[in-house]
């Protein structure tokens, strides 16, 4: 669902605009709407989620009505219409992964992070959710983290703990860099 509760005005950098132009060139004249999904991925990678004003700007850039962007953004599961944790852990919850313990991994994540599916931890660092089959059934349980969609395979509870610690350290390191 579209949320206007949270909104965030955004500016597209020169870099982004350069990338956008390159993407639009992939399609025939007048078919620039085809660039919509790739552009939304670019915008989300930059800002973490898709605010209404970000979508409106994409609409303007591609000469579309805003509704054309909203209807696409609400259809696809990868687009976030609300802010999420800085690290959003997405665990495959579909049959084959469940045969090898995905449900236990989700329970463990919920306990470890202390938040329910879809919620964000108080420090803003983490959120998690179950997603449908990630086409990695032979390496289950698996989880992915956007925007690069890094993949973690053959998960165990201990492995998940390590991963969370690593991500925490990474965030702290980044914070120190920013402060100094």
């Amino acid at each position: 669902m579209l949320s206007v509760k949270h909104n965030e005005s955004v500016t597209f950098t020169e870099d982004m605009l350069g990338k956008f132009a390159e993407i639009v060139r992939r399609y025939p004249e007048g078919r620039q709407k085809s660039a919509l999904l790739p552009l939304l991925h670019e915008v989300q990678a930059e800002f973490g989620w898709l605010s209404v004003s970000a979508m409106d700007k994409v609409a303007e850039y591609l000469h579309l009505d805003p509704i054309e962007v909203y209807e696409v953004a609400t259809f696809y599961t990868m687009f976030f219409l609300q802010p999420k944790g800085r690290f959003n852990l997405e665990v495959c919850r579909t049959g084959p992964c469940c045969l090898v313990g995905a449900e236990r991994i989700m329970t463990h994540l919920e306990e470890k992070l202390g938040v329910k599916e879809g919620e964000v931890t108080a420090d803003g660092l983490f959120s998690w959710r179950g997603v449908e089959c990630l086409a990695a059934c032979g390496y289950g349980p698996v989880l992915q983290i956007g925007p690069e969609y890094t993949f973690y395979e053959n998960l165990t509870a201990e492995g998940v703990d390590e991963l969370i610690n690593e991500l925490r350290k990474k965030a702290e390191g980044a914070k120190l860099d920013a402060d100094s």
Partner: peptide
Amino acid sequence: VQPGGGAY
């Protein structure tokens, strides 16, 4: 290459 958006 065209990316999808997460939809079976």
